[in-house]
Each structure stands twice: as C-alpha cells, then as structure tokens.
Design a protein around this nucleic acid. Structure first.
Lengths: 233, 233
DNA sequence: AAAAAACGAGAGCACTGCTCTTGACGATTG
DNA sequence: CAATCGTCAAGAGCAGTGCTCTCGTTTTTT
C-alpha cells in the first residue's frame, strides 16, 4: 500500500539506499573509523548537511550498516545450513562454520563491525539486537535437532556443568530447546571458539603463524564439533 | 651507563613516560579511537605540537602503548603461572586463563588494542611482534611440560590432524616443543577458544545473555582443558 | 489556492592529526 | 670563557571531521 506513495517518498527511499551503499563501499576500503559522512555526501554530489536529513547522526548510519550486516551474515549461514542434508548434523555444523568464516573474509570490515571491538562512542541500539540472533539461532537449531534425533555422542569430559549455572543454561535453552545443561555450555564453548578463530584470522592474529588457514580452521572446528558429540557422517 | 647522562635526557625520559601515562588514562576512558594528542598535550600543559618532539606521530604513541600492553598482560599471565604448583598442569591452565580474563576486564581498552579489531590505518610495526609472544609462550610451556611429564590423557576425538597440516604444526612446535601434531592443534583450538571468550565478554557480546560470566567462563575453559587431556588435580 | 512539511545549500563551530616557523634555552666544543 | 649547535615549547596554519542553524525552494497536504 505504501509501496509507491508520493514521489518524495520514493526518491527518499532511493537516496537512503544509495547512502548506505556508498557507506558500505567506504567501509570496505577505509574501515569503520574512516567512514565519513562528508565523503559519502561528496560522492553523491550532495552537501554534507543534506545527509542529516536521512541519517540524524553518523551512529544511525552505522546502525543501518550493522543491521544489514547481521542480516547478510545470517542469510549466508542459513543458506549453508539449508544446502546440507538435514540429517547430517556434523556436516551442517561444518558447513555453517565455513559459511561464517568465508563471509567474514569476504567482508572483513563488516564482520569487524559486528564482532570486533565496539566502535568508540557508539552504543548499539535495541534494533540491532533483533537482527543479531539470526546466525546463532542456526547453531542452536542444529544442536537441538541433533540432540533430539539422538545423533549426539558427546565424549566424557571431566567437569559437567555445575548446578550454579542452571539459570544461565535455562536462558540459553531458548536457543537450543530441549538440550541438557552440560551440552548447552559445550555449545557455548564451540560457538565462542568458532568466532574466536574467525576473529583472530580476520584481525590478522594468525599472520606469520599459520599457512594453511582453511585447513587449520577446519581441524579446529571439527574438534569443537566432536566436543558436542557430532559424529562425521 | 646511560642511566643518567645529561639533564636533558633525564627530563626527556620523564616527559615521555608522562605522555604514555596520560595517554593510557585517556585510552581507558575514551578508547583507542578517542586517543587525542591534543588532549594529552592539554592535560600536560603543553602545546600540541610539542608532543611531536617525543612521538613523531599518533601511531608511534599507539605502538608504545601496545608494547606496554603486551608486556603487562604477559607479566600477569607469567605471574599466575608461577603462583601455581608446577606439577598441577590443569591448575596452571585454569589460573592462566583467569589471569587473561581478569587482566582484560581490568584493562578493557588496552586489551582491545591488543586483541580487538585493528585500529584503522594503523600498521603494527615489527617491534610489537616481539612483545606479543609473551603470553602465548606461557600456554605453550604448560602444554609442553604436561606432555613431557606424561600428565596428559586427551580424549579420543574423531578426526586427528591430517598430514597436510604437518608444516604448520612444525612451525607451532617452536612454542610447544615435543608435542605431537594433533595435540598442537588442540592447543591452538583451546587458545583461540580462550581469547574468543574473553573478547566476546570484553566487547559486550554476552550482555543480556549470560549472568554468571565468571562461572560460565570457567566451565568453558575447563572443557577446553579437558580437550587437551588436562586432568584436574 | 493556502498552509505545512520536507528538502538542499551554505556558513559556521569545535574538534582532530600534523607541518612549519620562530625564538629561547642548554650542552658541547673551540 | 665564549661561541656554536642541537633541542625544545610555542604558535599559526592546513585540511579534514561531525554536527547545527538558517535560508530559500519545492513538494505534499489541507
């Protein structure tokens, strides 16, 4: 109904998209700190103050980019999961891990915006929180479905999760319904391990240390999968 | 010999230290991006251009802070390791993990400088690389000593490290001498898992998700320790 | 057709990193 | 001892930033 109301609204939507597109390109070359409203305006042939009609502040532009980023990453992860055989839980975990890594390497600055150090002075608003759960929801779904299918054979490891953590486990169970406490925390460990690796690689921490980054990543992520009891098909 | 040469050199060393101290304080309140040479100068009662006599550019000041940070973190980790019974390898691993987390939480912006997303436009010079190995050397030492002492009982997990990774393993063995390939990559996984967790917590990724952060961290890090075969004493 | 809202342009404020010049001080050498 | 030479703080200035305010113009709404 509001698809094409007034001409003004249409051109406004177009300009808004053009701004975010240019901003995303600038983000890719300069990084988050180098994102300049004036440069965006210059590239659009506008005067800098005009941008503020569309984004009240630089932070609002950042927020738009962050939400887009979460959605892009989430979509990539969802696609990887859907392209895998639903019953091959280990394969789904692996595919999804590679999807995260490859998206991050293809869009390093956007990944940095999502999972890197917070931009100084920027406070993530509520709106970003909704979009952020999209990728982690996929992980939770895989784990929950694998557990429900009885496809998990988690190895015996020394310390099971203590009862003091049951409140947090209950909270995390929203994402992995039906999964017992100990496995929930193994899932959390695997999840942080995955993003810890990807962040290290994107941030250049592995430079001059690891040659076969993809191979090492797969080895690490397979190990984390084994921790969850995911048996390779 | 150069301990107290001319008066000029002494006052120069003092002023240099004062600059880095103020910069570190500013870093703590504003973050890396908000580090302003002019603000430092203002706080010292100097004019901004005078700072450039001591640090040719903002990046050089950053480099000094980074090196100090690596050393501070490295020292904290070393202390935690030395305060543990040498034969209690699981305890040493746990102590060292907590040391990393606590130092990071006490100095979030410094930690961000070391392990966060790279500062845009800043290229870490060679000098920082030497200092960075200090903390990871401690992890390697614990693992190598535990292996040599025969104190490791790593659980059987599905995929051992493939031969294609042996070159990287050989490289990493410099830090963990004598450790077999598969265990080296488990160590790498545990290491990235540890820093992945700490980064998530420092960067606020666990907000509204986990209450008992310390407890969850310990659970995660114990699990990673079990992955290495570290048996609790 | 008149009132209201949205818009682009421009000037301006306070701030940044950094450069260049100027004048003063202190250490080193003739 | 005195002259010189290097080091230093200060200040002005450049190009850039985010952001605000005002001023006509254009478009939408009433």
């Amino acid at each position: 109904m509001t698809a094409s109301r007034t001409a003004r609204e249409r051109v406004r939507a177009e300009l808004t998209k053009e701004i975010t597109d240019i901003a995303r390109r600038q983000l890719a070359t300069e990084g988050a700190g180098g994102l300049s409203l004036r440069a965006v305006a210059r590239e659009m042939g506008m005067v800098s103050s005009a941008i503020y009609r569309y984004f009240p502040s630089r932070d609002d532009l950042l927020t738009a980019l962050i939400i887009d980023g979460y959605n892009a990453l989430g979509a990539a992860v969802e696609r990887a999961d859907e392209d895998s055989p639903p019953g091959d839980f280990a394969g789904r975990w692996l595919a999804v891990c590679h999807a995260v890594r490859e998206w991050a390497l293809a869009h390093p600055h956007e990944y940095t915006l999502l999972y890197g150090s917070p931009v100084p002075g920027y406070q993530a608003p509520e709106e970003t929180i909704a979009a952020r759960v999209r990728d982690v929801a996929v992980f939770g779904r895989i784990l929950a479905q694998a557990y429900e299918a009885g496809a998990l054979a988690p190895p015996d490891l020394a310390p099971p999760a203590p009862a003091t953590l049951s409140a947090d486990a209950a909270n995390l169970r929203q994402i992995m319904p039906g999964v017992p406490d100990d496995l929930i925390f193994r899932g959390l460990t695997a999840w942080t391990g995955l993003y810890g690796w990807v962040s290290f690689e994107v941030f250049g921490q592995f430079e001059n240390t690891i040659q076969d980054k993809r191979g090492s990543f797969e080895q690490s992520v397979r190990t984390l999968g084994a921790l969850l009891g995911l048996k390779p098909a």
